[in-house]
Simulated assay, not measured.
Amino acid sequence: MKALMSDESHHERELGGQLLASVSRSFYLTLKALPRELREPLSLAYLLARTADTIADTAAVPEDVRLECLHDYEALVQGNEMDHDRLALTIRTRFVSLQGDEAERRLMERFPDGIAWLRTMQGGSLNSIRNVLHHIIRGQILDIERFPGDGQVRALSTARELDEYTWLVAGCVGEFWTEMCITELPTSLDSTVSLGQMKTWGARLGKGLQLINILRDIGEDIQDGRCYLPNGLNGPAELEAEWSQWMLVCQEHLRSGLLYVQHVADAKLRYATSLPLLLGLKTVARMKSATWAQVQKGIKITRLDVAMILAEAALACRSPEALEKLYRKMEG
């Protein structure tokens, strides 16, 4: 259930178009391809998550201020209005002018509008959005606490910490995505597979996509004082070996993601859901074929890669078998 259509249309038109496209980059392709019933709640959740991410990543703002803002933001998302004016003022005076990226500056400027959009949501959609934001913001708070930006390079201590982090900031999104499919488009998932199984596959897909970001940005993150790979600071050889081990974990997660997409019954939703999987898989292929020196400089796919995946996915998503064939070809 949602509020009046006029309110939905206004907020989605104002925030779910150019602003969302500018801050979501390739993921906007997925949001734009979604069935209408899912586009608004998933777009809103993504916009709110990106707002929290920008708060967490504005390193020029002192750590204690960012942590306080994230706690206030979490309270506001959960329905506590007491912190709204204070948080809006802090974001306007402390964060807006520090954004080097024009899209993120506009995102900070439109902070009150994102909260207003959230207020139009009701029922299961609202509860699911609040739940997923709770986990994402928790992950961002842990990130700041573990990597305080004091000039010292730190690494996560255990594989469990890394798995927890990837679930908090991305794996929970796979579960949220599944919940929204059932809530807004009940016939969109394969009825022969349990909801619990779909959530498990969806969570692993999310964790795999987050691991791609970590593996792709390994060099940049270490320069910024963060190493998400346990034992990654024990020496160059250990870092490369740890990276290779987590690449295997990442690929296993993505294979679960393939199962997830194959069991999406709605054709349009299957196409939209396949895009992050296939774009991530292409990034993995690029990393696997790169030298270690190239990996440390950062790996990205090209616009031509993206265009080819969009075209190939449109054909492959017509059946689970064709999708698996494309996946195996890209996997190499």
Rank of each mutant, 00 (worst) to 15 (best):
Tyr165Met: 07
Asn213Ala: 10
Lys207Ile: 01
Gly196Asp: 15
Lys207Gln: 15
Gly225Val: 14
Tyr228Glu: 03
Ala170Ile: 06
Asp224Tyr: 15
Leu205Ser: 10
Ser188Gly: 12
Val153Lys: 06
Val193Trp: 08
Ile144Asp: 03
Met180Phe: 07
Leu168Lys: 12
Leu195Trp: 08
Gly208Ile: 02
Leu209Pro: 07
Thr158Arg: 11
Lys207Phe: 02
Thr183Ser: 13
Thr187Arg: 05
Leu189Pro: 02
Trp201Gln: 00
Met198Ser: 09
Gln140Asp: 07
Ser191Tyr: 00
Trp201Gly: 03
Asp217Gly: 09
Ala203Thr: 09
Asp190Phe: 06
Ile137Lys: 07
Gln197Glu: 15
Ile212Arg: 02
Ile218Leu: 14
Ser191Val: 04
Lys207Glu: 13
Thr200Gln: 12
Trp201Tyr: 01
Pro186Val: 03
Arg160Glu: 15
Gln223Ile: 08
Gly139Leu: 10
Arg160Gln: 14
Thr192Phe: 05
Ser157Phe: 12
Ala170Trp: 05
Ser194Asp: 00
Ile136Ala: 09
Arg216Tyr: 10
Glu220Pro: 01
Trp167Leu: 13
Lys207Asn: 10
Gly219Gln: 12
Asp150Thr: 02
Arg216Thr: 08
Leu233Met: 14
Leu162Gln: 04
Arg154Lys: 10
Glu179Thr: 01
Ile212Pro: 04
Tyr228Ala: 06
Val193Ala: 07
Ile141Phe: 03
Met180Arg: 09
Ser157Pro: 08
Leu205Cys: 12
Ser157Gln: 15
Val193Thr: 08
Gln152Pro: 07
Leu162Tyr: 05
Arg204Gln: 14
Val173Glu: 08
Leu185Asn: 07
Glu161Tyr: 07
